[in-house]
Amino acid sequence: MTKSELIQLLAEKHADQHLYHRDYQRVVNRIFNEISDALAQGDRVELRGFGAFSVRPRGARVGRNPRTGAAVRVDKKFLPFFKTGKELRERLNRE
């Protein structure tokens, strides 16, 4: 499922709200932008039953160029993480 398919399904499910297609688009974009903004501020996003997004630091290290073997400096950086919520985890193994 892609983002545009998700928007389409959302529009069908909420057809009774009589929104324009671009409004459903804005809803979906707003949700993911909100999550991205929170993570960019170092905040956590917890959606019970679905999962939680967080940001974890990864220390600076010396990496290797796999082709030449040369040492490369890899700066400290932050990576987003997702932990599946209990309900969704159980659903994945039930259906």
Partner: peptide
């Protein structure tokens, strides 16, 4: 970090 964003947000 400190804040946790939820469904309500």
């Amino acid at each position: 970090a400190g804040r946790t964003v939820t469904r309500a947000d």
